[in-house]
């Protein structure tokens, strides 16, 4: 039996999260195949074929896969499902959106957000915002799984020699349409792939004050994140949010500035290697998980920190 990984890509390149899902797939035993569904997606399919451990890339190239709408993508995956013991996608907004449709159409459970593979039918996944870890066993013939990307290393891109095979498109459901996208443009590293993250909370006080974090992030080559409170207050866009229902991150260094440390925020960052907290409230719960805690006014401490990095 083989394992099918559904690639997240933009038609020209693979999204990095795909590589973490490939690593999880390789732990299941059996050949790893990758499905690249898109429109004019030959470059992405070619990239997938060079990922270490990928035996075969199956590519469906049709106009109605351009935006990878959940309705069309799920129908395609279901048409290809027989012969696979497992179907995986990264637990990103891409994977979370379409994969439950695949599971329902196959009449199987989905195992969401796995952080470890115990055996081919048994997996560990966080529940209650990561305050408990459940080991679950699937009784279904096909296991449909989303993979928490921070829990699996990225498979090496390049060097692999998988075959590329075209597959037929399923019909266009024609029930939904993408009208537009408003993507955040930034020269900084992507939040989920960054080695260092500087994150701001309600204590920042305003969106304008995030400039302090930008200066620090630029010096460190860091990405910028935020707590839910900062996003809800409109300081920064939604895609900055780190937490239970936002992005899950695990960088080498996470600097939490003016973040109190609600359970829901900790759920998104507590697997970071080193955590620094800067907060003027010495009782803030963030200090309970921080390796280095600095009780200070962030409006003094952050510029000081930025300057000190030059020394």
């Amino acid at each position: 039996m083989s394992v099918l990984v559904i690639a997240e890509h933009d038609n020209s390149a693979l999204r990095p999260a795909t590589l973490n899902a490939v690593t999880a797939a390789a732990q299941l035993g059996g050949e790893v195949h990758v499905l690249v569904a898109g429109s004019g997606c030959g470059a992405a399919a070619g990239a997938a074929a060079t990922v270490a451990g990928v035996a075969k890339v199956r590519t469906a190239d049709a106009p109605h896969y351009k935006e990878q709408l959940a309705e069309n993508l799920a129908a395609l995956v279901v048409s290809l499902a027989s012969g696979y013991s497992h179907i995986l996608a990264p637990a990103t907004t891409f994977g979370k959106n379409f994969l439950p449709r695949v599971a329902a159409l196959l009449d199987v459970a989905q195992i969401s957000d796995i952080v470890s593979v115990v055996s081919a039918d048994t997996f560990v996944r966080p529940i209650y915002a990561g305050n408990a870890m459940a080991t679950v066993q699937s009784k279904d013939a096909i296991k449909v799984i989303t993979v928490r990307t921070t829990a699996f290393d990225a498979a090496a891109a390049g060097g692999g020699g998988g075959a590329v095979e075209a597959v037929g498109a399923a019909a266009d459901a024609g029930v939904s349409k993408l009208l537009g996208q408003e993507l955040t443009k930034s020269d900084r590293p992507e939040l989920t792939a960054a080695r260092i993250i500087v994150s701001g909370g309600r204590g920042m006080g305003s969106g304008e004050n995030f400039k302090l974090l930008e200066a620090l992030a630029d010096k460190l080559g860091a990405a910028i994140g935020a707590s839910r409170a900062a996003v809800d207050a409109g300081f920064v866009p939604n895609d900055y949010q780190v937490g239970q229902t936002g992005k899950i991150v695990a960088p080498e260094l996470y600097i939490a500035v003016g973040i109190s440390g609600a359970i829901q925020h900790l759920a998104g960052m507590k697997d970071s290697k080193v955590i620094v907290a800067i907060n003027k409230d010495m009782e803030a719960p963030i200090f309970q998980v921080a390796d280095y805690g600095l009780v200070a006014d962030l409006f003094q401490a952050v510029p000081e920190l930025t300057a000190a990095l030059d020394k």
């Binding site: 709408l69 990103t92 907004t93 891409f94 939904s176 349409k177 993408l178 009208l179 537009g180 996208q181 408003e182 993507l183 955040t184 989920t192 866009p237 939604n238 895609d239 992005k247």
Partner: peptide, 10 residues
């Protein structure tokens, strides 16, 4: 709300 920002569906 998607990982990269926002998108609008009909």
């Amino acid at each position: 709300e998607i990982d990269g920002g926002l998108e609008t569906l009909s």
